[in-house]
Every structure is written in structure tokens, then in C-alpha cells.
């Protein structure tokens, strides 16, 4: 199967270095402290944040291995970014629902969680964005969709703190191709560039959210105080 046509376009019309359209809707769920519905192409993920709240013994973990791997990845990532030292003796629950899976589920889960945590007002050191990158037809492809993931080439998911450029966590799998050091370096660079692209979009979505909240409360006056404004919704 051909993943990159002669014209340099992929099956869904993107170039190798383009990510899919990213949409983000804050406050999709009312019954929690913060939530975000994020769609990256046809992948759709809903993240809800509860807390910081009291420590409950029960902590629902997914039963199957694939979901557990995603949960562990998200947990590893966010325990490094959330300023947990401010909330000793309490817990923050992150619930993620994968509504549609069309590749890049892990990345979408991380990005949705970032958005939900920001919506909840949980203090974080920086934004976190995640992007995956694959290598098919001798080309590095950003933000693989389901068909491209199934091809079995190398796939690298990487989370980045876009402002400081720090890499937090990454996961790589390759079922059919051997990855050389040189290729790995290329994939790492591509993935970081992808994270920066996603950061740009997510950043503007968050700023929109604040602008809406301010406008809702204070009409047209953008300089008004927002200290006790209601929830961003």
C-alpha cells in the first residue's frame, strides 16, 4: 500500500509535516472541576478532572492492557507537570473517555488532559502537548491516522513542555522496521516540531476561553477585573 503519493500527499490529503485539525471544547461535562472534549481529526477524546479532593481508596483503573498503557503514560506525564507539592494529602482524578479512535489516541488523551487541567485551574509548570510520528515510504509522517498506524512502521509518541523544550515522556513501537540511531533522531525532531504545532493551536484555544469568560462577565471591556468571574463555560 502506498502511504505517500508522488505528489507528497498522504491518504487524507496532508503533507508529512502537517498535523490534523485540532478542535477543543471546554466544559463539555458539568459535573466535574474541569473538562475538555478534544478532537484531533476523527479521533475524539473526552477528559474530566476532579479535584484536588480527598483521597478515596477506590481508584478505577482500566481492565485491558491497551487502556492501562495509556493510563500509565498519562499518569507518568502529568505527575511531572502538576505542582503536586501544593496539594499534599489529596488526589486529582483524571477520567478519559475515548469516543472515537482514529489513530494518535495516546497523543489525543494527553492533549485533552492538558486542556481539562487548565480548565480546572490546576497549577501546572507548563503546557504539555503530545504528538506521534511515524516513518512510512521513507518519509517521516506527523500525527498518524489509524490506517497509517496499522502499517506497522515505527511509531514514536512524545510529550513535550513546549515553552522550555523539555521532553517529558515518550513511547516507541516498531513491529516491522529496525530503527537506526539516525532515524530515531529524525523522528524525535519531527515529533517535537509536531508538539509545537499542537501547542500553538491549544494555546489559542485556551486564550479564546479566557476571552469568552471575560466578555461574558464584563461585556466589551477586556481590561475589567476577572478575579471573581464565574466558571469559563
Amino acid at each position: 500500500m502506498e502511504f505517500v503519493q508522488l505528489s507528497g500527499l498522504r491518504g487524507d490529503g496532508r503533507r508529512g509535516n502537517e498535523v490534523r485539525k485540532l478542535g477543543c471544547h471546554f466544559g463539555a461535562v458539568v459535573d466535574c472541576d474541569g473538562s475538555a472534549m478534544l478532537d484531533q481529526g476523527l479521533t475524539k477524546v473526552l477528559a474530566c478532572v476532579h479535584g484536588p479532593r480527598e483521597v478515596a481508596q477506590r481508584s478505577a483503573r482500566p481492565g485491558d492492557r491497551r487502556s492501562l498503557a495509556v493510563a500509565n503514560f498519562v499518569q507518568d506525564t502529568f505527575t511531572q507537570v502538576i505542582q503536586t507539592e501544593l496539594f499534599k494529602g489529596s488526589q486529582i482524578d483524571i477520567t478519559i473517555h475515548i469516543l472515537q479512535a482514529d489513530g494518535g489516541v495516546l497523543a489525543a488523551c494527553v492533549n485533552a488532559t492538558t486542556a481539562a487541567l487548565i480548565h480546572a485551574g490546576v497549577p501546572m509548570v507548563d503546557f504539555v502537548t503530545c504528538c506521534n510520528v511515524g516513518y512510512l515510504d521513507h518519509t517521516a509522517l506527523l500525527d498518524l491516522n489509524h490506517v497509517e498506524e496499522l502499517a506497522g512502521g515505527p511509531e514514536l509518541s512524545l510529550t513535550l513542555l513546549p515553552k522550555s523544550g523539555k521532553v517529558l515522556t515518550m513511547r516507541m513501537a516498531s513491529s516491522s522496521v529496525r530503527v537506526t540511531e539516525k532515524l530515531l533522531q529524525q523522528l524525535l525532531d519531527e515529533a517535537q516540531a509536531g508538539c509545537q504545532l499542537i501547542h500553538k493551536v491549544l494555546d489559542s484555544k485556551v486564550r479564546e476561553l479566557v476571552a469568552v469568560a471575560v466578555k461574558k462577565r464584563h461585556g466589551a471591556d477586556p481590561d475589567a477585573e476577572i478575579a471573581d468571574a464565574p466558571a469559563y463555560q
Binding site: P52, L86, F87, K88, G89, S90, A120, G121, V122, P123, V210, A213, V214, R217, E225, I226, A227, A229, P230, A231, Y232
Partner: peptide, 13 residues
Amino acid sequence: VQTASRKPKVVPV
């Protein structure tokens, strides 16, 4: 940073 969240995150320390 002034936030617009509905309540301050307060936990006992």
C-alpha cells in the same frame, strides 16, 4: 495570576 475559576483550590496543610 488572577483566575476565573469558581472556587480557590484549597486543601488543608
